[in-house]
Structures are given as structure tokens and as C-alpha cells.
Amino acid sequence: MKHTLILIFLFVTCYACKQESDATRVTISGRHIQVNDSKYTIKGICYHPVPQGSEQRDFKTLSQDLALMQEAGINTIRVYAPIDDKAVLDAIAKAGIKVIIGFGYDQKGFFDVYSGSFINYVNTYKNHPAILMWELGNEYNYHPEWFNGDVKNWYKDMNAAADLIHQNDTNHPVATAHGELPDDVALSLSPNIDVWGMNVYRWDNPEEIFAQWAAKSDKPMYISEAGGDSYMTMESDGFQQGENQSAQAQANAMILDKIIENIDQCAGVTLFSFTDGWWKAGNPEKQDIGGWAPKSSGVPYDGAPNEEYWGIVDINRNKKETFKVVQTKYNQIK
């Protein structure tokens, strides 16, 4: 019995050591991210897989999706809610892809900031090799009504949450996904944010934001959302009204070119989005035109965010024209 207990102890100890050794050490070096002391440029995609007819995220197509991501040269997935399934994270890590885990403010206690339960997730998965960063909020600066009419309340809560993560996990940075360029108030109230993600929709040219950010901060930034949809609400810029994959492909090519040209000032990009989301604008059984997104007038080339047409693949995982664009551009980033 004594020998059995010793063997069990050694097994548990070795397993814990393996988890520690498998864990990724992510650090900040100037304006860039490093993974295990090597520069890591985010060649990413926003990922929220919801099947046709559903409104809930589902990973049943994960193997197929990961294969497509590998083919496209994607090395990072950005998710809007935690993945509380080790098997899913294991599969992502095995594919050589990392994850930016997003925490919401009030998600009914599902690892959110409001309940404080987000830190339980951090402590559960902080040694998992798939984790790249923790991310707090998504475009919350557009929603002061969620914070008693004053977005400064969010910045203070976000800063406190980032501090708590730092106390519990020294191996991963904390980011946020801000709607556009953060102002001085946001920066002054959020010193614990290590990496600033920015959702940037400036037609097909986000170039100015890199110099604007450099004038404000010496911290890393990345483009946490950018891109175009594949539906033209009206004829514009030489593109016909209706479903138009060529418009999306051109917009994404132009956007990614500008990011690549400024990669010394930028830690990378998570393009929006991997798959079309039929749940976003109407009946989830069919693909609807329209939808709504805050501050979205900069969507190329019609200024209209057709929310169910953003994928680089469609709902059935057929590649759109922009898939090849992403593959080509990401292969240019070293």
C-alpha cells in the first residue's frame, strides 16, 4: 500500500510538472509579443462557430475548422467567451494554434468580470499551452449604458481585473479589445492592460492608426477586428449590389497589406471573421441581409455591416474568395 501511494504521488507530481513545462510563457518586448522568448506575430482570426439554426456556439466542426485555419496560415484564434473544454483547447494546441481568451463583463456568472468568476478560469487553464493572452471586454467603450452611463466605471473594473490576473498568472499578458483608438482617459485608467487590441473599421485602410497609437503609448497593440463582409447593400466603388465575394476579397487584401507594411508597430491582427454567422441578424435557419454594429460606417465598400456575411468561409465551410487572400498575406508575415 505504501509503495502504491508513493507511485500515485509521483504520477501526480510528474503530471503537474508536465503541465508546467507545456505551459507557454508569453512576454512583452517593446511593441511586440514573445512566446518562449521568440517574437510572435498574431496571424489570427475571430472565431465564434454557431451552426445553422442555432444561436449557441458549438465546436462540432472544430477539426474541419482547424484544418482550414492551418491551410490559411492562421496561428491565433480570438474568441469572445472562454472555452471551458480542455479537449477543445488540446485540439487547438495540437494544431499549432494559440487562443486569445475573451472575458465579458456580465455573462450570468460564466467566467465574467462582474461576478469575479473569470479568475477561476484563469487559474484552471493558465498552464494550458494553447493560451496566448487573456482579453477583457470587446468594444465596451461604445456602451456606457452598461456601466451606469459612465464608461470610466468599466475602465476601472477592467484595470482591477487585469491586476488580479497578473497576481495569479505571470506567464500571459492581459489585453482588451477597444472600439477604435483609445483616448487618454481610457489609457490613464487602465495601466494594467499590457496589450491594446483595437477593432478598426476605416474602410480598406487602417494605416493611420499605427502612428496615432505610437504617439499615445509605447505598449504593444494589435488589430483585434478588421475586414469587410461579402454583401454589398448598394452598388459602390465598382462593386455590384448583392452577394459580392470580390468586394470582400479586395477589402481584406488592402487592409492586410497596410497591416503588413506597419508590422514593426503592430503585434498582428485577428481578422473578422472565420465563418458566416447566420444567427446574428434574423432567422438563424437562413442567411439574412442587414444587422447592426456600433460605429460601423467604415465598413468597405458600402458602409453597411451585413452581419451574417463576414466569414472567410461560409456556414458550410466552403472557402470564399477572401480565403486565398488571407492565406497569401499571412504567408508573407514572418
Score class of each variant (00 low, 15 high):
Glu71Arg: 09
Gly102Trp: 10
Ser236Cys: 12
Gly53Lys: 02
Ser224Glu: 09
Phe210Ser: 02
Val200Glu: 09
Leu7Ala: 14
Gln52Lys: 13
Phe274Met: 00
Phe11Asn: 03
Tyr121Gln: 07
Tyr105Gly: 05
Thr27Pro: 11
Ile28Thr: 01
Lys320Phe: 12
Asp314Leu: 05
Ser224Val: 00
Ala293Lys: 05
Val325Asn: 02
Asp257His: 02
Lys39Leu: 03
Thr176Ile: 04
Asp264Ala: 06
Arg78Cys: 04
Gly268Thr: 15
Ser246Pro: 02
Gln248His: 12
Phe103Trp: 01
Lys320Asp: 07
Ala186Cys: 09
Gln212Val: 10
Pro49Val: 14
Gln34Leu: 12
Ala249Thr: 04
Ala247Asn: 03
Gly197Asp: 06
Arg57Val: 12
Gln19Met: 14
Trp213Pro: 05
Trp278Ser: 10
Leu89Pro: 03
Gly228Ile: 00
Asp37Ser: 14
Glu208Leu: 15
Ser63Phe: 07
Ala304Arg: 06
Glu207Pro: 13
Ser297Arg: 10
Ala304Tyr: 10
Thr124Ile: 09
Asp84Asn: 11
Tyr201Cys: 00
Pro173Gly: 06
Thr270Asp: 04
Gly298Trp: 02
Ser63Met: 07
Asn127Ile: 08
Trp310Arg: 09
Thr124Lys: 11
Leu5Pro: 13
Leu256Arg: 01
His143Thr: 14
Asp218Gly: 00
Tyr201Asn: 04
Thr176Trp: 07
Asp302Tyr: 02
Gly242Glu: 01
Asp183Val: 06
Trp213Met: 10
Ile100Trp: 05
Asn205Tyr: 04
Gly277Ala: 10
Thr61Gln: 15
Cys46Leu: 03
Leu68Tyr: 03
Trp134Ile: 15
Ala81Met: 10
Asp184Pro: 06
Val174Cys: 03
Asp22Gly: 00
Glu285Pro: 15
Gly242Ala: 04
Ala304Leu: 02
Glu207Asn: 13
Lys258Asp: 05
Asp84Ala: 00
Val269Asp: 11
Lys320Tyr: 07
Asp58Trp: 09
Trp134Tyr: 10
Lys156Phe: 00
Trp278Lys: 01
Phe11Cys: 11
Phe118Trp: 04
Ala215Val: 05
Val79Met: 01
Asn205Arg: 01
Glu261Trp: 11
Glu321Pro: 03
Ile260Tyr: 08
Ile42Pro: 00
Gly290Phe: 04
Lys334Pro: 10
Gly268Asn: 06
Phe111Leu: 06
Val88Gln: 00
Ala293Val: 06
Ser273Leu: 14
Gly116Gln: 11
Ser38Thr: 10
Glu20Ile: 11
Ala175Met: 07
Phe59Cys: 03
Ser236Thr: 00
Tyr125Met: 02
Lys324Trp: 04
Tyr125Asn: 06
Met158Pro: 09
Ser63Glu: 12
Lys60Ile: 14
Tyr105Pro: 14
Met221Leu: 14
Trp213Ser: 06
Trp310Lys: 08
Ser117Glu: 14
Ser273Lys: 05
Trp310Ile: 11
Leu66Ser: 07
Gly149Tyr: 00
His178Asp: 05
Pro294Asp: 05
Ala72Val: 12
Gly228Thr: 01
Ala253Gly: 14
Gly197Phe: 03
Tyr15Ile: 08
Ile223Asn: 00
Leu89Phe: 01
Ser273His: 07
Glu261Leu: 08
His48Val: 14
Tyr222Thr: 08
Ala162Trp: 01
Val88Lys: 08
Ala253Asp: 15
Ser236Asp: 12
Leu181Lys: 06
Tyr105Glu: 03
Phe147Asp: 14
